[in-house]
């Protein structure tokens, strides 16, 4: 558990509205969030609750309609491309469907090479770059020699997510946003991916925002949990408090609807 000392990222009144008139959707609705240095925070909600939209605002990939983001105590200003580039050295993401977030026509080595360049390693000798890429691949149990000249779509879902973790290994951001990083892979490979993520986090001291619809997973990985329903946070607190003694009816329902192994799963309540 991280010591809650230094605030790393803060959101105040964040709101995102898509469309207008009859087609208006308030995807994120006046959300406040405080992220402390080194902690793992989960955002849990059902499909369409606004998790990915919030993640994209925090990442600076889409603009908020209303509200502010503070990064390391300063109001975030990423209006120019140069400012964005600077911001992205600090905050990076792994997405649910890695195939959609990557230019699939970029070979795998160039995906990794880009990371080295982003960290200012453009001028390094090529052998040094290969060494760094091989080290990142070793970390996630992939063989760099077998990946060169391959395209991302030639990898399995689990290998692809490991490649995404290798990227983060090279980029070493302060904050990682992991949006459903294991929802496309089976329960068995999920443990491997989570292990690697948490090991990386310990190694480089990252702060992690973990987004998931799986409340058990959130309980397992996080210090703090936020529960999101229709764009709003309805409950938040330490993982133990939120999962073991939930107070909001929505949280209670999410927990009771998950099949468990020690407690009975009550089907009469649907």
């Amino acid at each position: 558990m991280a010591k809650r000392e230094q605030i790393c990222l803060e959101a105040r009144g964040l709101t995102k509205v898509f469309g207008f008139g009859r087609n208006k959707t308030v995807a994120v609705d006046h959300v406040d969030l405080t992220l402390y240095e080194g902690e793992v925070v989960s955002i849990v909600g059902e499909s369409g609750s606004g998790k990915t939209t919030l993640a994209k605002i925090l990442l600076g990939l889409i603009n908020e309609t209303e509200g502010e983001v503070y990064f390391q105590g300063q109001k975030r200003d990423i209006r120019s491309y140069r400012q964005k580039q600077e911001y992205w050295k600090n905050i990076q993401a792994i997405f649910q469907d890695p195939f959609s977030s990557y230019n699939i026509f970029n070979k795998i080595d160039s995906v990794l090479l880009d990371c080295i360049h982003m960290r200012g390693g453009r001028r390094l000798p090529y052998e040094k770059k290969v060494e760094l890429m091989a080290e990142a691949c070793r970390f996630v149990n992939l063989k760099f020699e077998e990946l060169t000249n391959k395209y991302p779509f030639e990898l399995s879902g689990g290998q692809m997510q490991r490649l995404m973790i290798a990227r983060i290994f090279l980029l070493k951001p302060r904050i990682l946003v992991a949006d459903e990083p294991t929802s496309m892979i089976d329960a068995c490979s999920r443990a491997t991916i989570l292990d690697m993520l948490m090991q990386l986090r310990n190694e480089i001291g990252m702060t992690v925002i973990f987004i998931t619809h799986d409340i058990g997973l959130a309980y397992y990985v996080s210090d703090t949990v936020y529960i999101m329903e229709r764009g709003r946070f309805v409950e938040s607190g330490s993982a133990d408090k939120v999962i073991l003694t939930p107070s909001h009816p929505y949280t209670k329902r999410l927990i009771s609807d998950v099949p468990k192994i020690y407690e009975e799963w009550d089907l009469s309540t649907v």
Partner: peptide
């Protein structure tokens, strides 16, 4: 046996029980 080590449920005790990944 390994598969059982990958079970994740929102129940007490889960946080202390370490997941076991099958290499």
């Amino acid at each position: 046996k390994g598969l059982m080590g990958s079970i994740i449920v929102p129940e007490e005790g889960l946080r202390s029980a370490k997941l076991t990944a099958i290499p």
